[in-house]
Design a binder for these strands. Structure first.
Length: 273
DNA sequence: GGCTGGCCCTGTACGC
DNA sequence: TGCGTACAGGGCCAGC
């Protein structure tokens, strides 16, 4: 499940390989989620950027190719020429003028490809309303506090909406709340708690970036290699295992359709509502 | 306008 | 061994 560290790892790999190449042919799965991938045909790649969990490929015709990896999306590059070898889960491919082919595979089809006019994200409402980048100086504890206290939703649900901050998914949210010792099911927080959560978010993401991402099942970089942050996790997926801080067994629950792991001792009792 | 819950989608794990 | 079911979850959207 690619989140910011995984998407950034892929971005760095693609940005080192694609700029300067022109797309001479393309194919897309007929699903509306992928069909517009062929609209990039004829354009040259200028740069590969990232916003939250979205990859933004700048094209030289004033358009952007946007990719969201969903749960199982992955890019790979076939170096040799000839007919692209699409697998059963290939959802799009682009052949470049140097003979290489970029493939996008997505087993569960939660991903998405779109080609839009540069900066026009109205067809992607989450991207259009994305919060600040976590390493942007404008993302301060106070900004986070105000984004979270202005809602009645659970703090984690609001965080996963991508509006308080961009790029945090289930794994890094659980890690951040654990590090901050804030219960994710709370619906309010103090400025002091927001300061700890702000630090926890950045700490969790930096650990993920330094480890090349978290590979629990599907995530692979463009080079086919997984990340190693799964060995650093303190909370996510550790239900029933001892808390690395207090030794109590971690608990898990489903709130708003998302499984959440937490330490009832360190992060406090579950709010009644 | 904010919030909730259902849906999409398929491999894996597990029980019978 | 084979079948059925539950589960994983990011983003979108309908309904309240």
């Amino acid at each position: 499940m690619p989140e910011l560290p995984e998407v950034e790892t892929i971005r760095r790999q693609l940005d080192a390989m694609l700029p300067g190449s022109r797309i001479v042919a393309a194919w897309a799965h007929p699903s509306a989620k992928f069909a517009s991938a062929v609209d990039a045909t004829g354009a040259a790649v200028m740069a590969v950027r990232r916003r939250g969990k979205y990859l933004l490929v700048d094209l030289d015709n004033g358009r952007e190719l946007i990719a969201h990896l969903g749960m199982t999306g992955a890019f790979s590059i076939a170096e040799h020429g000839g007919t692209p070898v699409a697998g059963p889960y290939t959802r799009a491919w682009w052949t470049l003028d140097d003979g290489r082919t970029v493939l996008f595979d997505d087993t569960r089809r939660f991903g998405r490809i779109a080609v839009v006019d540069a900066g026009q994200y109205r067809s992607l409402p989450t991207l259009d309303a994305l919060g600040p980048e976590p390493f942007d100086p404008m993302f301060t504890p106070k900004v986070l506090w105000e984004a979270l206290r202005g809602t009645k939703r659970r703090l984690k649900t609001q965080l996963l909406s991508q509006r308080p901050v961009a790029g945090v998914g289930n794994i890094y949210a659980d890690e951040a709340f654990w590090a901050a010792q804030v219960h994710p099911a709370r619906r309010s927080l103090t400025l002091r708690q927001a300061e700890r959560l702000h630090a926890g978010i950045k700490q969790a993401l930096v650990r993920g970036l330094d480890a090349g991402g978290t590979t629990l099942r599907d995530y692979r970089g463009v080079d086919g290699r997984g990340g190693e942050n799964q060995f650093n996790l303190d909370c996510y997926g550790r239900r029933g295992l001892p808390c690395h801080r207090c030794g109590d067994l971690l608990e898990a629950a489903v709130w708003d359709g998302r499984t959440t792991t937490y330490c009832a001792q360190c992060q406090g009792p579950t709010p009644r509502r």
